[in-house]
């Protein structure tokens, strides 16, 4: 891809991704409310929240929070830009991990019990996510012979046919990364619960707004990662996204939060038995295809 096109795509991503992410969050809140026979907030509510937070007084537990949350946002954007410009998927995974490291460090910096527990739990979820993301990169490499996202579009056939196990593992990781029940271990999705929003407890005002926006970006990145499995089946992928979204909402509303141990066990078992097995079979039979 030439440089000019890359820059245009990057700028488009930076502008559109937060809109999509915010709208998704808005839909999520409205639909959740409907499931509980409530009316729910306006669909643009996430944007109102962020705008309000942006204008609050600057306050923090530790001045480094400001720069760490900025780093979280910037690296999340960078990771997304790498992805959408057809760049290297491994590098994107590393940038994503780096971004989360900054969020965790910001939570640590407060040295307060709630945010410390949140930070540890967030760290555990990063740890749980990492193997899946690396296996996705490895799987794509085995399919297309390259880590470049762009090369996946050249391959005949879609990732979903060759990598179904990996795709299922990714779905669970999305559930974890969106901090949805039953895997909302690091933040407690609802603010008044015992973790008091865990990892974000110590952030207020602008810092919290940055974390929120970064979260929208992350959502878009993860969903596009899932779409990548359907490179030649765009209509089908749109249907899949809607189905997955609905499932996610139902799961979120039906299940209570599980412990971090349960989270680790369930997701890693899926990763091992579906993800790794998928790659092993691909390694054995890949030659035949």
């Amino acid at each position: 891809m030439n440089v000019l096109l890359s820059i245009i795509v990057a700028i488009a991503f930076v502008l559109i991704a937060p809109l999509l992410g915010g709208l998704f969050m808005g839909c999520d809140r409205v639909l959740t409310a409907r499931m509980q026979s409530r009316v729910g907030p306006p669909i643009l509510q996430p944007f109102y929240d962020v705008a309000k937070l942006w204008h609050k007084e600057k306050a923090f537990n530790n001045p480094v929070e400001t720069i760490f949350t900025t780093a979280y946002l910037v690296l999340m954007v960078l990771s997304g830009v790498m992805f959408t410009t057809g760049g290297n998927i491994l590098l994107m995974v590393f940038a994503l991990a780096l971004a989360h490291t900054f969020l965790i460090l910001a939570a640590y910096a407060a040295n307060a019990p709630f945010s410390h527990i949140g930070a540890e739990r967030e760290l555990i979820s990063v740890m749980i996510t990492e193997p899946v993301l690396i296996l996705i990169a490895a799987g794509f490499y085995m399919v297309s012979g390259s880590f470049q996202v762009i090369d996946l579009f050249i391959v005949d056939g879609s990732g979903i046919i060759l990598l179904p196990g990996i795709f299922v593992a990714l779905c669970f990781v999305i559930l974890l990364r969106l901090r949805k029940s039953p895997y909302d271990i690091s933040t407690s999705e609802h603010a008044h619960q015992e973790l008091v929003k865990g990892v974000t407890t110590s952030f207020s005002g602008r810092n919290l707004a940055k974390v929120e926006i970064a979260h929208w970006f992350e959502l878009v990145i993860l969903v596009s990662l899932a779409i990548l499995f359907f490179t030649h089946l765009l209509v089908f992928s749109a249907i899949m996204i809607i189905v997955c979204f609905t499932l996610l909402l139902i799961i979120d509303n039906v299940f209570p939060r599980v412990t971090w141990k349960m989270t680790m066990k369930s997701i890693w078992l899926i990763t091992l038995f579906l993800g790794v097995l998928n790659l092993v079979l691909l390694g054995i039979f890949g030659v035949l295809l």
Binding site: N62, V64, A97, T101, I104, L105, A107, Y108, A109, A110, N111, A119, E120, L123, I124, V126, M127, I128, E130, P131, I134, L135, A138, L272, V276, L279, V280, L282, G283
Partner: peptide, 27 residues
Amino acid sequence: VVFVSILAFGSAFTIFFWTKWLGKLFM
């Protein structure tokens, strides 16, 4: 594939113990 999976899980552990140390320094 075996090596890649081992590396994937091993690096996840690495992230865990280094980050929690790093976090302590920034408190």
